[in-house]
Write a protein that binds this DNA or RNA. Structure first.
Lengths: 342, 342
DNA sequence: TCGTTGAGTAACAGCGCTGTCAGCCGGACG
DNA sequence: CGTCCGGCTGACAGCGCTGTTACTCAACGA
């Protein structure tokens, strides 16, 4: 029952052609007569032929695998990235190798280079904060390993990168709060290792400035993109005098922490405190009250990055080096006009 | 700068030995003198030699890759599974290929078999509900493809499987509610395709029975392991007369839905309604109030499954075919004594 | 003394593909 | 009519490793 699996030789024999011609057909190479092509395809189908990827990899010196490096505690983010990358991989007949890691470990550099040198992967996609880890970037460039960064921060050797316009989205979010009449808006910065934290702060400050409010006097706390850090920062912000009437947390996890801090302080949201987050994680919709936030096209970011990487691997170098996608404000019930009691 | 990468021939030449001996050392095969071994290792190190995985795969007819099949909307669950599987893979020098999919598609069977026939993967780990997808199981057995299921449901050919004792945990959770004085406990069943749903219901009923309460008269609704389904089921449960004083949702997502339904009905949790979930997803801790739930050792389940699979791939067949791990009750603030107003 | 043994090593033939290059053939062109 | 060219195909040499087989040599017992 368990017959030997058909090889390219079997297909060639069956079709009465050379294995090279079979190879050409299967790889979509030019210069094959349609009639020949059909014969090959028929034979392949008849034998239920499945090319052996290992042999292909060895002979072609390419692995058709791309590696995805990340170090992110947010499952939803990681899943979305994986999802987007996988969608493109399937379409282009590549495989995806996930490689979660710890940014800080210098061994990461060796790991990444090794992945390539063992010809396990052809190229890498780096997400934040790995994408901003300079030693790695330099090593990859030096070793001539193809990669695409998902990050808004510039980096050595203007490597291609894909990002979301965090600054603009943060500016729009702040505009939204200001339009609701808030003038004393607390801000919680994200993790210092992430470029996004910086950009979101910039957007916040830009909006204040544009509306004649002093960015330097705005109450700001440093968080870590975690629920607990959001909770702690909110406690500090809410202890200030005058108390902010709105808090803009740089991500939804911290915003959830803010919500809990408000709950414990018996502050009604949004009546007494408007709260907004960032990222539109699934739970944002289910928070009490549902969170106003900014939705990032994460899947698309991953798709663009993957496409870009594969293009580079195939030698098609599109002029483009930076792709910037835009987020969208999602207005829910956690923000309302300043001083409104519902 | 970009010199040709060292191959096994270079190492052999450098060490003054045959490539076969180098291969033996690098693969930990026996019958090599310690002194010879050292010479090989020194040469390999000196040349920064990295074995080419593609060549190894082709020659050994093994890919050293295991595939992970899942179809699960819960990012936290998937991440935990990936995490556990990766930990073992790294230790045993395997790679992990993730393969999210749609259970219902019959093409999944072809995909899975194809993954193996192209020698992309040596074996597969199946999580629920894929693990309970009979056509796939049968196809894998027929094609003689190694796999391990993560599921509590029995399946054709008593294939190895790893699971969590859901029934016991659900029983303990129900015991907990009954001990708090609840006698009218609503239950929300999970997704019908998941074996866990069934087991949790069994545990619930067993506990009622054991305490002299009639399982058949308990208010039960069919959910889908989603927030929205939990919300809808809760609305129906809370509309019943007499109204349940506690609701046991088969997972945390649905429990969150219950919380929201209670919030909209202005029912205080836990004073007027105790709520408990299952799974201890990260958000359970951050719910308002924090959810009483059952924590599953998901990472460990994945670790055990991966180890089991690799063992089978390496021919070491441990007698064990079923591994059952235990969950742990996590008591938080969403459950309290029946009728207590705090 | 000589065969026997087994640990240690090497030679060599693939694994199943792709890349290179050479060959064939028919049509365009001078 | 010969030459050239481009489309199409095949022969063949690897890609870098592992499995198999065979060989060498010291230790050992009859």
């Amino acid at each position: 029952m368990t017959r030997r699996r058909a090889t390219i030789d079997d297909v060639a024999a069956q079709a009465g052609l050379s294995i090279k011609t079979v190879s050409r057909v299967l790889n979509g190479e030019p210069n094959v007569r349609p009639q020949t092509r059909d014969r090959v395809l028929a034979a392949a189908k008849g034998l239920a032929y499945q090319p052996n990827v290992s042999a292909r990899r060895l002979a072609s010196k390419r692995s058709f695998v791309i590696g995805l490096l990340y170090d992110n505690p947010d499952s939803d983010y990681v899943m979305a990235i994986q999802d987007g990358a996988l969608a493109v991989c399937r379409r282009l007949d590549y495989h995806l190798l996930i490689h979660p890691c710890r940014t800080l470990a210098p061994s990461l550099v060796d790991e990444a280079v090794s992945l390539h040198h063992r010809s396990t992967v052809d190229g890498l996609i780096l997400t934040q904060p790995v994408a901003d880890f300079e030693p790695l970037i330099r090593a990859l460039i030096e070793a001539d390993i193809a990669f695409v960064r998902i990050s808004q921060r510039d980096s050595a050797g203007d490597s291609p990168c894909v990002s979301v316009d965090d600054e603009r989205a943060a500016r729009l979010m702040t505009d939204h709060l200001i339009l609701l009449g808030h003038t004393n808006i607390g801000f919680i910065i994200g993790h210092p290792d992430h470029g996004s934290s910086h950009d979101r702060l910039l957007g916040f400050r830009a909006s204040l400035q544009a509306h004649g409010l002093s960015p330097d006097r705005a109450p700001v706390e440093q968080g870590l993109y975690t629920f607990d850090s959001g909770f702690a920062c909110a406690q500090r912000l809410l202890a200030r005098d005058p108390r902010p009437t709105a808090i803009f947390a740089s991500d939804d996890h911290m915003a959830m922490g803010v919500l809990t801090a408000a709950y414990e302080k018996k502050l009604a949201v949004p009546a007494e405190l408007s709260v907004c987050g960032f990222d539109d994680t699934p739970m944002a919709r289910y928070a009490c009250p549902p969170l106003t936030t900014a939705r990032q096209p994460i899947r698309q970011v991953a798709r663009v990055a993957t496409e870009c990487l594969v293009n580079r691997l195939q030698g098609k170098d599109p002029g483009e080096r930076r792709y910037v996608l835009e987020s969208k404000l999602i207005l829910r019930e956690s923000t309302s006009r300043c001083g409104t009691r519902r």
